[in-house]
């Protein structure tokens, strides 16, 4: 979920900006020039994946897939997801300008955390372990994102507390859906191209 300009307190906006710059710096450090093309094409793919709508009862939700982005990109998920958010803000008007840092941290930090927690499991030779890790990673990323969104709202003022609770509640079904979609994606990648999980996310290795 995108936060817009004007809702958050200055301290939260600045804090988000500082954290985002730190995450970007770490993410860009892992992006050697050889890896720019693969990171760019994968970043474009996650941009397109966010356009996919999944029906949910009478309404529909769009995928975020930040968990899968983390599993595939590792620290590079930070700049990749930032680029996506920047393009969305500038060309679609989603989100805002001063909150770009906060929004980046809300989406990309869970991605990196999921990668740190699940990178072993998702690369496991046992398909069942990999798929289960995929589900956990996909769902966990959404839960973390929702909690972070709620946290920045709540930190900006107590009057946002009910809205913050509502955000977390509304993301529970989304987390389940993202988990299932992510698990299916991991299943396919495991069968077709298991090295995908090691291309960018693995510690730097001479290509």
């Amino acid at each position: 979920m995108h936060i817009v300009d004007g809702a958050l307190s200055n301290a939260v906006v600045l804090g988000g900006g500082v954290l985002a710059v730190g995450g970007l710096a770490l993410g860009l450090r892992s992006l050697t020039l050889e890896k720019i093309p693969v990171a760019g094409v994968l970043s474009a793919t996650f941009f397109v994946a966010a356009l996919v709508h999944v029906p949910l009862g009478p309404s529909s939700v769009h995928l975020i897939m930040n968990g899968l982005a983390g599993l595939v990109l590792g620290w590079a998920a930070f700049p990749a997801l930032f680029v996506g958010l920047l393009l969305q803000a500038v060309f679609f008007g989603f989100g805002g300008l001063t909150v770009l840092g906060v929004n980046t941290v809300n989406i990309a930090l869970p991605a990196v955390l999921v990668w740190l927690l699940c990178r072993r499991g998702v690369a496991s030779a046992d398909t069942r372990v990999a798929v289960l890790t995929g589900f956990v990673g996909g769902a966990l990323a959404i839960v973390l994102t929702a909690v972070q969104v709620a946290l920045v709202l709540w930190l900006s003022g107590d009057e946002f507390l009910p809205a913050a609770k509502l955000v977390v509640l509304a993301h529970v079904p989304v987390a389940v859906i993202e988990g299932l979609v992510c698990a299916a994606a991991v299943t396919l990648i495991h069968r077709v191209k298991p090295e995908l999980f090691g291309t960018l996310a693995a510690p730097a290795r001479a290509a």
Binding site: G40, L42, C182, A184, A185, K193
Partner: peptide, 27 residues
């Protein structure tokens, strides 16, 4: 697309396939 497991699995395969092709394209 409906709200069911088949839809989630199919869309997951779709995204997985896009990623696999993206990787091959980037190479």
């Amino acid at each position: 697309p409906r709200t069911n497991g088949h839809t989630f699995r199919s869309l997951g395969y779709l995204i997985g396939m896009l990623l696999v092709r993206a990787l091959e394209r980037s190479e």
